[in-house]
Amino acid sequence: MINDKAKNSSQLIMNSSSGHLSRLKEILDTREIGLLLIIFVASILLSIFSENFLTFSNLTSVAIGMNYDVLLALGMTLVLLSKGIDLSVGSILGLTGIITTMLLQAGVSILFAVILGLLSGTFLGFINGIFIAKFRINPFIVTLGMMAIARGLSVILTSGYFVSNLPEGYLIIGQGKFLGIPNPTYVMILFVILFDYLLRKWGPFYKAFYIGTNPDAAELSGINVSSIILAGYVISGFLSGLAAIFMTSRLAMGYAQFGLGAELKAICAAIIGGASMGGGEGSIVGAFLGVMLLAIINNGFVLLNLSIYWQGVINGLILVIAVTVDAIRRARKGKSRV
């Protein structure tokens, strides 16, 4: 299959030789621009129908809502890129949240609890990665198993109760603001920029594109396939842990069911953003915009007092549309193929 996404990502790292105009055309033809346009139109419509949309407080709340999903979608993009999948992100988020908050309750210092929390998320991702990259077991099955185990452990640890009474200092992480913008939003933007840059320009990450396209050929090309695949799951675990810390400190509690279903949302966003189940494709900015689109639509439902029950329907339909548009685009590009 011809896939434009692969082409785009490669084009981004290379300066076009065929003139500025065609370069411009290529950029305009990317998924990211398409998504941005849709988001732009949706925002205009929303600000027409609801005066509350373009208020600072509303936009801040949208940004906060996006924050967790963006972190998970970043990890998911990396994993999908290397021909994998991570169904356990939601559960890892839940378990890491429980571990961190329980440590805090037990009197562990904030810094230490956060570090241990992040480490435990990273460690769970590492376990996934070992099974997948070293033992070569299907990532769908491994992360499905991890999903059940981590969720089960969260429930066991808490017996289903909330973990509350967290120290004030911890709550600042998620609730604090700088220049009126919540702390986690800065971190989210930082990560998006960092990962996007690294994925396009940094050798070790860039190799993931090769692995996803043809892992066997990548191995023979001297690319350290298992380490890079492993790294993807480790990063995904770390980001889930980070999301857990933001979520628990923002909501001032730990709860075993946090992040339930988040994996599907993250996959949705990554796919809308241009990743493919076949591997070798994916864009960090795309995934970010994917989350943004979903968040703005959800926000619209709230603002327009529409039944929030429609959200699921709309989210599902967006995925259908994204996939369809991609299929059409592929067919169109196929014309150049002999």
Binding site: A6, F209, Y210, N214, A217, L220
Partner: peptide
């Protein structure tokens, strides 16, 4: 199968 990345440039 082992050499090229067909969907890459």
């Amino acid at each position: 199968n082992w050499g090229l990345f067909l969907e890459k440039t």
